[in-house]
């Protein structure tokens, strides 16, 4: 199962990644090879088989909603690449 360069570019955008022309060629080739190998799965008859998303088949677990201390803002902000006061700074999203 081959994947086109355009598809790779589209998936890269969805994943918020970008590639140079050279890397794009390489990724297209590699992903096509890997997907070809994945196509092996179509040999398996899975009609009527329930999918598994968690091997322990755990159910949701609930607890009382309680107020507990959380991290001090200073600790959480200490790893921010850019901050101002008690806020994370990001590039402008809305034009003035």
């Amino acid at each position: 199962m081959a994947i086109s360069k355009e598809e790779v570019q589209h998936v890269a955008h969805l994943a918020r990644l970008e590639f140079s022309e050279e890397d794009l060629e390489r990724f297209t080739r590699e992903l096509s090879g890997i997907l070809e190998y994945m196509a092996k799965l179509s040999e398996v008859d899975t009609s009527g088989v329930e999918p598994t998303y968690n091997a322990l088949r755990l159910e949701n677990r609930f607890r009382e909603d309680q107020v507990r201390p959380s991290f001090p803002p200073e600790e959480i902000l200490s790893n921010a690449p850019e901050r101002e006061g008690s806020s994370f700074v990001v590039p402008r999203v809305i034009r003035s």
């Binding site: 799965l41 179509s42 398996v44 899975t46 088989v49 329930e50 999918p51 598994t52 998303y53 091997a55």
Partner: peptide, 12 residues
Amino acid sequence: YRKASQVRTLII
């Protein structure tokens, strides 16, 4: 994704 998760059931 769904196909792989079904195969996961068969492996189990």
